[in-house]
């Protein structure tokens, strides 16, 4: 009984380590075969449609609502200290530094990441990837790399759109609805939000998240057992793993970027 448990643990550990090694090799192979994704940029553009454009609606709508909630809640809190004018700062900094990159990434993971995993997993299960290899076409270069770069390029745009939409939502609620002074809203925001410190760091975050999510999604699809359960399990794992990865990376990046400054 105990022995079996230990054996089980051992083999799971070995499996895990093996998978990490395979994932690392996969990632290196994707980077090495990225030439095609740029030489034939049409391939990447096509994938940007599926991961970027199709995620637009959910990103824009969520951004608007998150910003509107920030406007309401922020006003409630700031009002007690008589500093409603700082609403612009609060909304903008929360969005640009944290909520924009993180929430956009979480939405991207569940909208585009899961789709990528399911697609690659099914392509593998129906032998499309093998067929490609037998046609002397490298699936890593032709299928995986364009999706990877499309995700990496789309993510910062999506995060920026989320933040912009959120700030607009905060403006709608704060200025138009509640009546915070419009001039103060924007000018305080401008003087407090630093380009490098806040906006650039937010963009860097979203690029890192884009790399993490697409790499995880592609790997899970590529590694999925070629069965219906295999693909569905891999899709779930993509959403769970990449969401956790986004939150953990966010902590690490925030600690590096805004530490003690």
């Amino acid at each position: 009984m105990l022995r079996r448990a230990i054996e089980n643990l051992g083999s799971r550990t070995i499996d895990g380590v093996w998978r990490i090694g395979f994932a690392a090799r996969f990632f290196v192979a994707v980077l090495l075969h990225s030439g095609t994704a740029f030489r034939r940029f049409g391939l990447t553009i096509r994938e940007m449609y599926f991961s970027g454009v199709l995620s637009l609606i959910i990103i824009l709508v969520s951004g608007l609502f998150v910003g509107m909630v920030l406007g309401l809640q922020g006003y409630e809190t700031l009002q007690t200290y008589g500093s409603e004018e700082a609403l612009g700062i609060l909304v903008a900094l929360s969005l640009v530094r944290e909520l924009g990159p993180v929430v956009a990434a979480l939405l991207f993971a569940s909208r585009a990441g899961s789709a990528i995993t399911a697609e690659i997993g099914l392509m593998k299960a129906t032998e499309q990837l093998t067929a490609m290899e037998m046609m002397a076409v490298n699936p890593i270069a032709r299928v995986i790399a364009p999706r990877f770069w499309a995700g990496v390029i789309s993510m910062p745009f999506l995060a920026a759109l989320f933040s912009a939409m959120g700030i607009f939502g905060g403006y709608l609620v704060g200025v138009q609805l509640i009546g915070v002074d419009e001039g103060a809203f924007w000018s305080q925001m401008q003087s407090a939000v630093d380009f490098e410190e806040d906006i650039l760091n937010g963009i860097i975050k979203s690029v890192v998240f884009g790399v993490a999510i697409t790499a995880i999604a592609l790997f899970e699809g590529y590694d999925a057992p070629p069965t219906a359960e295999g693909v569905s399990g891999a899709t779930t794992r993509t959403v769970v793993t990449s969401s956790l990865a986004v939150l953990a990376l966010d902590f690490v990046l925030t600690a590096f970027m805004f530490r003690g400054v």
């Binding site: 392509m123 129906t126 032998e127 499309q128 093998t130 067929a131 037998m134 002397a136």
Partner: peptide
């Protein structure tokens, strides 16, 4: 290998067409 494969065709059991 890829050079050689360009001169081979393979028909998979279920076709393996790009869907």
């Amino acid at each position: 290998l890829y050079r050689l494969r360009r001169r081979m065709g393979m028909l998979f059991q279920f076709g393996a067409l790009f869907t």
